[in-house]
Write a protein that binds this DNA or RNA. Structure first.
Length: 643
RNA sequence: GCUUCCAUAGCUCAGCCGGUAGAGCACUUCCAUGGUAAGGAAGGGGUCAGCGGUUCAAGUCCGCUUGGAAGCUCCA
């Protein structure tokens, strides 16, 4: 009998091994360093422990911590070590465990502990985890039948584990992973021993509902991050620090862009500096839209409840709406702009020749969000949408979608955002006929194919009234935000009985495209603050340049310059306080003002300006006209500052 | 909304085991006329988020309210 078996390595090389050889032994045969570094493996694409024996011809892959998959094995083991540490510290039987999966950059474990764990306990737990790693406890696994496993966890008083096992098919064997005093059911794989866990850190503590359902009990969740090297861990901690420095809430306060107040939770107050930026964003969008054939409109904030009942918002959305009763009539603050635009469409008879009609509005909407969901400008209860509704004939859908995509591309390009696109198709409880859905999904796909825009399909993630294309922008720290959206809608025209007269003088139903580019101007502003770390491009900067006279004798020249630049349309200030240049310069830098103009005797004599750009050390003297031209050009081009 | 944590001067924060409030920055005034990231001095500024309780005594301990932060789909 042949007790040899062939294995195929990732590079295509084949090898003959004894039947039943473990992956660890295979690694040893390949190289000592691989044997040392391999933490898990893959047999025919399936993740397995390094101790897994190979008994038939297979594709073999050995994983080290250099691969994402290997790293995730380590993170998973780290989660088990966390559970073990908690159990050691709080006593067996005092902690019930939920799930402990791997997440981006790390892991978490949900548990119910007799005594509640607080932030300062994390240090203690982390120390115990270090001990467990030091002890380098071997991790072994064995299989139990479902019944055996359930009995096992019942005995261990782990009700959540028992519940989890219920959802596993009865014929599947359950793997128990054991590391001395701790054991857990787990799909695996895991590291060979606890000592393989390298750099980790417990980051935060939070509540989490059992199985994510708010009707269930709340467990305590401990989050951790873990990396293959201390260096990677430090880099990630540095990234978190950087993100914190850029936090728009912090910068918003520092740069006096906006504020919040108890009197209106979740509703931003824009301070003069912030309002300038908002206005610029709005104006830029307005100009781009007008060029693209949109007409700007404005609809009331408050409309009667009946309208919202007709539009279907009452049914789907009234829990998120604000109401008010006046003159014995119920009114609602609009959570969306669509119904208003529908009424406008119906204002007169429309011909097929009129379409497409593109109605745009910077519409202020109110939506009641959970208090716990509020987050600076990123999640608010009132915000301004750069909303538009495009009324089209069916045959115009593709062309209009394409135009809208180009507009979005143009706008995002200005901020230096790259983006990815997702096409979401018909969801479960959707309205409308199959044919219409198929036609429209196809239309959207056609457009994306034609303009060669790569996209990902999200099956069943569309709105209940039609499919959509979402745009996700990537900011300077690599984080992704969903902003623009293009949604096809057959329901709204139906509900409002919208029609146009076709060439045969018959009434026809138009299709509506919902379109937003920034999405919420408020949220987009928040994203921009973090993207630029508060150092806005010149066209957005609330103060574009500041004049710093070296001493008070230069104040008249400062005043003259200020007038000149103001007249040229530049937002400029003169800092004429009786302070030293160094102080004024420091303050101007901290306000991230794009240009600093220093003027003294030399400049006044030659009628020049000594210009220093934000973030640069050197400065240069230029004539007034030259400086004015540079700034005007930079503003007109909406150039991005590279700081 | 729920869980945990937090709220002290305009801002950032200190304040131990409960004994009657502190720093830096900012602000005001004065001195200094200063050339590329903080010149010096003096001064004003607090219902310690709000309400209630325990106590001889509460910023501190306990409740409630308000506001804020993190998290609450990533399935052994």
């Amino acid at each position: 009998m042949n007790n040899k078996v062939k294995i195929i390595l990732p590079d295509g090389k084949e090898k003959c091994i004894e039947k039943g050889t473990s992956l660890r032994k295979i690694a040893e045969q390949i190289s000592m360093s691989l044997a040392k570094n391999a933490v898990a493996g893959k047999v025919n694409g399936k993740l397995v422990d390094i101790s897994c024996a190979v008994s038939e011809e297979s594709h073999i892959e050995l994983l080290t911590l250099d691969s994402e998959e290997g790293l995730n094995v380590m993170r998973h083991t780290a989660a088990h070590i966390l559970a073990q540490a908690v159990e050691r510290l709080y006593g067996k039987g005092n902690v019930q465990f939920g799930i402990g999966p791997v997440i981006e950059h790390g892991f978490y474990y949900d548990m119910k502990c007799q005594v509640s764990i607080n932030q300062s306990d994390l240090v203690k737990i982390e120390k115990e985890m270090q001990n467990i790693i030091q002890e380098n406890i071997p991790i072994r696994s064995y299989e139990l039948s479902l019944e055996e496993a359930q009995a096992y966890f019942k005995k261990k008083k782990q009700p959540y584990k028992v519940e989890l096992l219920e959802s596993i098919p009865a014929n599947e064997a359950i793997t128990i992973y054991e590391q001395r005093d701790f054991s857990d059911s787990c799909r695996g794989p895991h590291l060979p021993s606890t000592g393989y866990v390298k750099a980790f850190h417990l980051t935060k503590l939070a509540g989490a509902y059992w199985r994510g359902d708010s009707n269930n009990e709340m467990l305590q969740r401990i989050y951790g991050i873990a990396f293959a090297r201390k260096k990677d861990l430090d880099a990630h901690l540095h990234f978190l620090e950087e993100a914190e420095k850029r936090d728009h809430r912090k910068l918003g306060k520092q740069l006096e862009l906006f504020m919040f107040s108890e009197e209106a939770p979740g509703m931003p107050f824009y301070l003069p500096n912030g309002q300038i930026i908002r206005q610029e964003l709005e104006q830029f969008s307005r100009e781009a839209q007008l060029k693209a054939g949109y007409q700007e409109v404005r609809t009331p904030l408050l409309m009667n409840q009946q309208l919202w009942e007709e539009s279907g918002h009452w049914d789907h959305y009234h829990e998120n709406m604000y109401f008010s009763e006046v003159d014995h009539t119920n009114f609602a603050l609009k959570p969306m702009n669509c119904p208003g635009h529908m009424l406008m469409y119906k204002q007169k008879l429309r011909s097929y020749r009129d379409l497409p009609i593109r109605l745009a509005e910077f519409g202020q909407v109110h939506r009641h969000e959970y208090s716990g969901a509020l987050n600076g400008l990123l999640r608010v209860r009132t915000f301004c949408q750069d909303d538009a509704h495009i009324f089209v004939r069916e045959d115009q859908i593709e062309a209009e979608m394409e135009k809208a995509i180009h507009l979005i591309d143009e706008v995002y390009g200005v901020f230096g955002f790259s983006y990815t696109v997702e096409l979401s198709t018909r969801p479960e409880n959707s309205m409308g006929e199959d044919a219409a859905w198929q036609m429209s999904e196809q239309a959207l796909a056609n457009v994306l194919e034609r303009i060669d825009l790569p996209y990902q399909v999200n099956e069943g993630d569309g709105a209940f009234y039609g499919p959509k294309i979402d745009f996700h922008i990537k900011d300077a720290l690599g984080r992704s935000h969903q902003c623009a959206t293009l949604q096809l809608d057959f329901q709204m025209p139906e509900k409002f009985d919208l029609t146009y007269v076709n060439a045969d003088n018959e009434k026809q139903r138009p299709v509506v495209i919902h379109r937003a580019i920034y999405g919420s101007i408020d949220r987009f502003f928040g994203i921009l603050i973090e993207h630029f770390a508060g150092a806005f491009p010149l066209w957005l900067a609330p103060v574009q340049a500041v004049i710093l006279p070296v001493s008070s004798v230069h104040q008249p020249y400062a005043a003259q310059l200020k007038d000149t630049f103001k007249a040229a349309g530049i937002r400029i200030e003169a800092d004429c306080r009786e302070e030293k240049l160094g102080l004024k310069l420091r303050e101007a830098q901290m306000k991230k003002i794009p240009y600093i103009f220093v003027i003294g005797n030399e400049e006044e004599e030659k009628q020049t300006i000594n210009v220093r750009k934000y973030g640069e050390k050197q400065s240069q003297s230029l004539s007034i006209m030259e400086v004015q031209k540079i700034l005007q050009k930079e503003i007109a081009e909406k150039a991005i500052r590279h700081v």
